[in-house]
Structures are given as structure tokens and as C-alpha cells.
Amino acid sequence: MKQNFWWLAGALCGVAVVLILFLIKRSVQGQNCEYDERQTAARGKAYQYAFFTTAILELIYVCLEAAGISFADPSMGPLLGVLCGVAVFAVTAIFKDAYVSLRESTRSAILLPLFVLGVNLLIGIPKLLDGAAIVDGRLTFEAINLIIAALFAVVLAAIVIHWFRRKHAERDRGDE
């Protein structure tokens, strides 16, 4: 009970810190996320793919649990579907040129995923090494940092691949 209280308090503190940082950034820089009409439509499509990915993965997880095949704790399994949905949204938006808003640069869009990836790897790798992330062949909630790191690694890879493809295409075209 006492452990649950501290866990919940820690989670709430984390959310509060992120919220405060977001509000400070917004008050300093103004509304930064402005997308044009094509980007808005593309992001809508990306949300659609993400929604169906999450729904299908949650269904698969429930079916596997019902069949007695368990690869993750109940606190971790459903989160995997949600995080995969987030990855599908981000990658789709990146490849449709709808991830970076009008006022952002690709460079600034790379910094946040890079930071989150680094922090989560720092926290997650020790948990993997001391065996807390996988117990009896099942993912525990302790693996969340590694899963988030993997998600942001995918996002970063997509940004870099798309950036190189775009540069290559522009060079071939000799600019407009």
C-alpha cells in the first residue's frame, strides 16, 4: 500500500514537471505547433492508422491472455499496444511530411526524441541487466523505459531516413 502511494506520487510528480515545462515553453515561444491543411489531413490519416494498430494489438493481447499465453504483465501488456500506436502515428506523419510543424525545424524535432531516448536508456539498461525488466520470460513494468527508448529510436530513425531521402530527391531534382 505504502509502495503504491509512492509510485503514484512519483508518477504524478513526473506528469506535473512535464506539464510545467510545457507551459513554460509555450509561454516563451507561443503556440509552436501549427500545421498547414495538407499536414492536418495527413496527421488525421496517421491517427487513423495508429488507432487501428492499437485496437488490433490490444485485441491480440487479450486473445493471447485468454489462451493462457502471457508474454507481459497486465501492467505492461496493454501499454505495448498504445506505444506501438504512437510509433505508427509518428512514423506515418514523418513520411508524409506532417510531423514537423510550420515553425519547427527538423533539427529541433530531432532533439526531443534524442533526449528522451538517452534518458530512458540510462534508466532502462540497468533494469535489464539486474533482471527486473524480464521475469520468468515475461516483460514487467520495469521494462517500460526500454520500450519507450525503442519507440523513440524508431521515431529518430524515421526522421533521419526521411531527411536523407528528401535531401537525395532534392539533389536529383537540382532544386526547383
Binding site: D36, E37, R38, Q39, D97, L102, E176
Partner: peptide, 17 residues
């Protein structure tokens, strides 16, 4: 007031504005 990629998509016929 749009992104460069949007103008590019219109010129290529990939997007109907």
C-alpha cells in the same frame, strides 16, 4: 503560409489544395 512540401505536393499533383 504552408510548408514547402505542400507546394511541392501540389505541383506534383499529389495533393489537391
Amino acid at each position: 503560409g504552408v510548408s514547402r512540401q505542400t507546394i511541392n505536393a501540389i505541383e506534383k499533383g499529389d495533393y489537391n489544395p
